[in-house]
Simulated assay, not measured.
Amino acid sequence: MDELYPPLPARAEGFLDVGDGHRIRCQEAGNPDGKPVVVLHGGPGSGIAPMARRHFDPEAYRIVLFDQRGAGQSTPGAGDLAANTLWHLVSDMEALRERLGINRWQVFGGSWGATLALAYAETHPSRVSEIILRGVFTVRQSELDWIYRGGAANLFPREWEAFLAPIPADRRDDPLSAYAELLADARVRDAAAVAWSRWEGATVSLYPQESFVQQYAEPAFALTFARLAVHYFTHGAWLEDGQLIRDAGKLAGIPGVIVQGRYDAVCPPTTAYELHQAWPGSELKLIEGAGHAVTDPGVLAALRAATDAFRP
């Protein structure tokens, strides 16, 4: 963890009413007069992680974080699905930027956070100074099929069998829709959520780590994580298939760094490569010996190099 800056407490914290009955929890850390950066958590549903504040020089950056709708301490929580789409989250970011009086900010996100970062930047490019992405995910059908329809199963057959176990045998050709039904059934919802989340925990790191599996399988986390992920992915995140890469030309002129593990089994590097090809001026850093996890070898160092390079 030497690649991270020292632990950094939040300097300010509160809630922003974004409408539709939602209030998002927001934090600031670092220098209040520093360069603004907004940090987008993954999932959907994982919430603010204290470690996320440590990617940035606290003397140089004004670090903004928030729990997305239905996640973390935002209300209503526990994976609330009402008025909860990708475009609601994009609007929430704009409301937060305006509330904080920020003209332009750096956008930093990994995995699902990279999805939201791209959607926001392609919608509001004039509000973005730079973009840093990790483990790129754009919610194309091919990406969903890889992780939820048997692609990654070739690397993790035992874990895939456990992922399929809650699904009736005649529904296993479409695990996403099957999990949507399971998570809507109060009798089996909690067990299904744990099975869903354990699959992510098993595949996230280059070298399987039981600590990841246990973290993802914690029941309260798993329920929020599974409900939001299945909600978003069964709707293709309300994107046209391939939209975020198709529209990457809108990012021309915005400096960007893409950090991608060579052996990412959750979000394979082909997506990051195709995004890099479509985004003029972007830089792709393919990290050998790394998977999807931010703590895999070389990933934290590459992220810190990127944030340091964009320091004022």
Rank of each mutant, 00 (worst) to 15 (best):
G298V: 15
Y216L: 06
P208L: 14
T271D: 12
I131D: 15
A302Y: 12
L16S: 00
R25C: 13
G21Q: 01
A83P: 00
P32Y: 15
D57A: 07
R99Q: 09
A226C: 04
A178L: 15
N154I: 12
I245N: 05
A237G: 04
A186C: 08
L286P: 08
S177F: 14
A60M: 03
H231V: 14
G101T: 12
H88M: 03
N31E: 01
H292V: 02
E28K: 09
S205K: 11
V266R: 10
I167C: 06
L239R: 08
R69G: 07
W238H: 13
S46H: 04
D80P: 00
L223F: 01
L239K: 14
E122I: 07
A29T: 14
A82Q: 13
V38Q: 06
A252I: 05
A49W: 00
D2C: 11
A248I: 04
D174V: 07
A265W: 04
L116R: 11
G151S: 10
Q243A: 13
S197V: 03
V128C: 04
Q214T: 14
E130K: 10
P168D: 15
A226G: 04
H276Q: 13
P219S: 09
A10T: 07
P9G: 02
G47H: 01
F310W: 09
Q215T: 11
E28V: 12
L96P: 05
S46W: 01
G236M: 00
S205Y: 00
V39R: 05
A293M: 05
S142W: 09
E159H: 01
D33V: 02
A220V: 15
K250N: 02
A83T: 00
Y61G: 01
A191R: 08
G19I: 02
Q243P: 08
D247L: 09
S129Q: 13
A78L: 13
H235Y: 01
A186I: 12
R99T: 10
V294T: 14
E59Q: 15
R158S: 14
P175H: 06
R134V: 05
E181C: 08
A82T: 15
A226T: 01
L8R: 09
L65G: 02
W238Y: 05
Q277A: 13
C26Q: 07
A217R: 02
V139I: 15
H231P: 01
E159C: 04
Y61L: 01
C26Y: 11
E200C: 00
W199K: 03
Q106Y: 03
D17M: 03
V38S: 04
L100A: 00
G72A: 12
L100W: 13
D296N: 13
N84D: 06
L16G: 06
E181D: 06
P76R: 01
L100G: 02
A252R: 12
Q209F: 02
V39K: 12
A180C: 02
G135R: 10
C267E: 08
E210F: 03
E28C: 14
Q106S: 13
H55G: 11
E288I: 12
L251Q: 10
R69L: 01
Y179M: 04
L300T: 04
R227G: 02
A191P: 03
V128M: 06
H292T: 09
E98V: 10
S91A: 11
F233W: 15
D308M: 05
E181N: 00
